[in-house]
Amino acid sequence: MPELGFLAVCAAALVGALGQRALGMGFGLVAMPVLVLVVGPLPAVTAMTAMGVVASLLVLAEVWPLVSWRRLPWLLVPALAGVVPGILLARLADDGLLKTVMGAIILVGVGLSAWLHRAARPLTGNVPVAVTGAIAGVLNGSVGVAAPAVGIYGALGDWPQRAYAAALQPFFLVMSGATLLAKGVLDPAGTPPWPWWRWLILCGVIIAGVLVGARVASRLPERAARRGILVLSFLGGVAVLWAGVAGLTA
């Protein structure tokens, strides 16, 4: 792989790790599009999942006391149930069409979230959390991006932003591990042909991003954080839609 491509991956990992710490999400949204361009779609899923595990572990170590463990299963269990159907859907459906439809749904959801956030009271109870988890699982298994779904709930739900951002770390950690395992069984994919020292550099870049993100998080108002999550969700939807349209027109 050209050196310039690896530098682009490092830059994406730095920004993604910063967002993961400051907002609770963002690593996959930033890193996935760059990885797809540099190493291709199948190795990108494996690489992004492995890097996401590292980022979530580092952030979780910092925000552990804020995690709402009693409420987390309502998000995590439906998500795990949705991973395998998402992978099977990706195998059965045309890749370009699937990503186009998913990207369009994400963008509509983000638009509705921005409007409803101003016009309605927050969603309460655990049912919206469970629905969010199921949708996130299907998205993660099918197109490799679960963050837009949890981002939409983050803007509309009654879960305090800092506590929600903390809970997303074990959520993404378990989801990444489950997706990696399920893909290995149902849809084996390769990994980027990187030497060990490049993986070591990426780990160092992710650590730096998390440290910078911790400083940003301490100064970030909750309202600004929720807006940031919506922006990241919107960008994720655009990336998925763009990939789908490009696949259909190729």
Rank of each mutant, 00 (worst) to 15 (best):
L89P: 01
R70T: 14
Q20T: 03
A81K: 00
A12M: 03
V240W: 07
A239N: 13
S176K: 13
G144C: 06
L180M: 15
V59H: 02
M51R: 01
F172L: 12
N140P: 02
R215P: 01
M175A: 08
G244A: 13
A90F: 08
W197I: 04
L92H: 13
G16I: 10
I135H: 02
W199D: 02
Y164H: 13
V38T: 03
A167H: 06
L14H: 10
I201T: 08
A163D: 09
L181V: 08
G144T: 02
L88Q: 12
G137M: 00
L220A: 11
A55W: 01
Y153Q: 03
L230W: 02
D187A: 14
L89T: 07
L112V: 06
A61K: 05
Q20G: 03
L241C: 14
L98N: 09
I207W: 12
L123H: 14
L200P: 04
T191H: 09
L66K: 09
A155P: 06
M48H: 11
D158C: 15
A208V: 11
L23R: 10
G204F: 10
F27K: 00
G86I: 01
R162H: 13
R91K: 13
E3G: 14
S233N: 07
L235I: 05
A166P: 06
L123Y: 11
W242N: 03
A11M: 12
V129G: 09
L220P: 06
G111E: 08
I207K: 11
L230Q: 04
A47N: 13
A120Y: 14
V54K: 01
L173P: 15
I207F: 13
S218C: 12
P193W: 06
G151A: 09
K183E: 02
V59G: 02
L72R: 04
L66F: 04
M1R: 13
L180V: 08
R215E: 09
A12Q: 01
Y164Q: 06
A12I: 01
A55N: 03
V245A: 12
V131E: 02
I229M: 15
G228N: 13
A189H: 00
A163M: 07
V54Q: 02
L4C: 08
A167R: 04
V83I: 15
L97M: 15
A50W: 04
L156R: 11
V84N: 00
G237H: 00
M48F: 08
T132H: 06
V39L: 11
L186W: 03
P128C: 05
P195R: 10
V38G: 00
W199F: 10
L88R: 12
L181S: 06
L92C: 14
T132D: 05
M48P: 05
M175L: 14
V77A: 10
A167T: 10
T124H: 15
T132R: 08
G19H: 08
A217H: 12
V174S: 04
R219K: 10
A147K: 03
A165Q: 04
L23G: 05
P43K: 11
V84D: 00
A114E: 10
A147Y: 03
W69D: 15
A155Q: 04
L211H: 13
G103S: 07
S176D: 14
V185Q: 13
V83P: 13
W74Y: 15
W197M: 06
I201H: 03
G5V: 12
Q20I: 02
G213E: 04
G141R: 01
F234E: 02
A81V: 04
G236C: 09
P122K: 11
T100R: 01
V15E: 07
F6R: 10
